[in-house]
Nucleic acid binder design. Sequence first.
DNA 1: AGCATTTGTTCGTATAACGCACAAGATATC
DNA 2: GATATCTTGTGCGTTATACGAACAAATGCT
Lengths: 258, 258
Amino acid sequence: MTKVQASEDKDYVQSLVRGLEVIRTFSRYKPRMTLTEVAQQTGMTRAAARRFLLTLVREEYAETDGKYFALRPKVLDLGFAYLSSLPMWEVAQPIMRDVVNVLQESCSLAVLDGLDIVYVARVPTERVMTIGLSIGSRLPAYCSSMGRTLLAGLPPAELAAYYDRVKIERRTERTVTNMVALKDAIETSRRQGWTLVDQELEMGLRSIAAPVKNRRSEVLAALNVSTHEGRTSIETMKTRFLPVLLDAAQRISAAVPQ
Amino acid sequence: MTKVQASEDKDYVQSLVRGLEVIRTFSRYKPRMTLTEVAQQTGMTRAAARRFLLTLVREEYAETDGKYFALRPKVLDLGFAYLSSLPMWEVAQPIMRDVVNVLQESCSLAVLDGLDIVYVARVPTERVMTIGLSIGSRLPAYCSSMGRTLLAGLPPAELAAYYDRVKIERRTERTVTNMVALKDAIETSRRQGWTLVDQELEMGLRSIAAPVKNRRSEVLAALNVSTHEGRTSIETMKTRFLPVLLDAAQRISAAVPQ
DNA sequence: AGCATTTGTTCGTATAACGCACAAGATATC
DNA sequence: GATATCTTGTGCGTTATACGAACAAATGCT
């Protein structure tokens, strides 16, 4: 059954979608834009972009100095609505801090969204990756420990759909790009209940992840610890990190309300 | 000059605003809702709420199991658009981790939004407050160290407007609730360039904050370190924490692009 | 000063979005 | 299993929301 075009769907509110597109058009590289720039970036007419921007200003999601527009912190409330609705979110954070106290390495929690993982909680220690990571950051699922953990927890049909859509790109010379090998890796994750990824996302980055599940054993999120290859051997990750990680994941899982 | 009612403003896109209201209606206490519940919570007709929910589902900001609706991680992209547009955001995080490494206490960065501070970055250590704090969390400005720092950095007219609007509520028996005393405290913050708040927001919580400024000396954000009163004396905060905090705030300020 | 670019505004128009009413489906109760 | 109640899906007539073009005004550049 073909998907009806959004514009033909009588239950579709395109003004909402267009307004959200305006919000999303701001970024690190475009922290502030003029009206004309927003219209250009979003493909809207100047008049339409202007109405959305003025509406966002009026509702305090954005501000303007009369020429340039920028987002305001109220936009974070939208994301926070999502974070605070995650069942494990509140209980995960102290447990993650315990992990960091014991292992002295960064600990993160992520969920799967499309082809990516999205960070929903993070206790960072020393920087391991070249880019800063934070709540809201996205990374590809196929070459990250949390991503493979989450993929391993998908029902078979959804995992098959993922394989159909994903475009594997080599991120380092160690990235698994062969689909058969990737499927094997994910199947291994599923069987052993944890995942170790060594410098496939970025050289130097090693991380190990375990699933957070609900009472029906559905994988809700993945918890990881990440380190630098110069600091921690694979063997140490398995012998020292893994028990702490599995215990933490289990404690978070146990605390998820029904 | 009176403010025109939104509904009379021809440049106002109320479908966008209503859609954002639907997103905001989800929370820790209502992580998933039926159509009827969303309509009741937002005051919309069932048909209108239904169109917004189906639009959010179609655009992958929300999901449904056929009866209950819940937000999806894509909503975090909206907040992330704001975070990534903050000039000091990228550089602040490694500096904050340095602070935590040295002091072994939580470090946070916040901005002022209305009467609240909003957390935009955080490196947590041991939990100090009873509620978990994260990016997107809000706290009142008048009784927090970062809040007073940010208030101290406001232009006089804006600070006066803040005093007119704020409703002071005693949070602990130590909360400064006298407006004269509060103004003195904020003036002291302004003069000395840092702020220490001791158990006014919550018993046991001590925190010290310093401003992050741009090249024009405008206060953009506040950086803090927080601890528990049982763990750290006021004297130690001044002699050990403050130099590290001021240095970190200075480094972040220096790294803010023009 | 002149020209180019951007922004503000008006206004006629189209249709997006509305809400009501009823049908259909789901759930609870007996 | 039947009935009552509640919730959701849908159609449709209507309205007013949102649209974009065109032109004026403001700003910026040379």
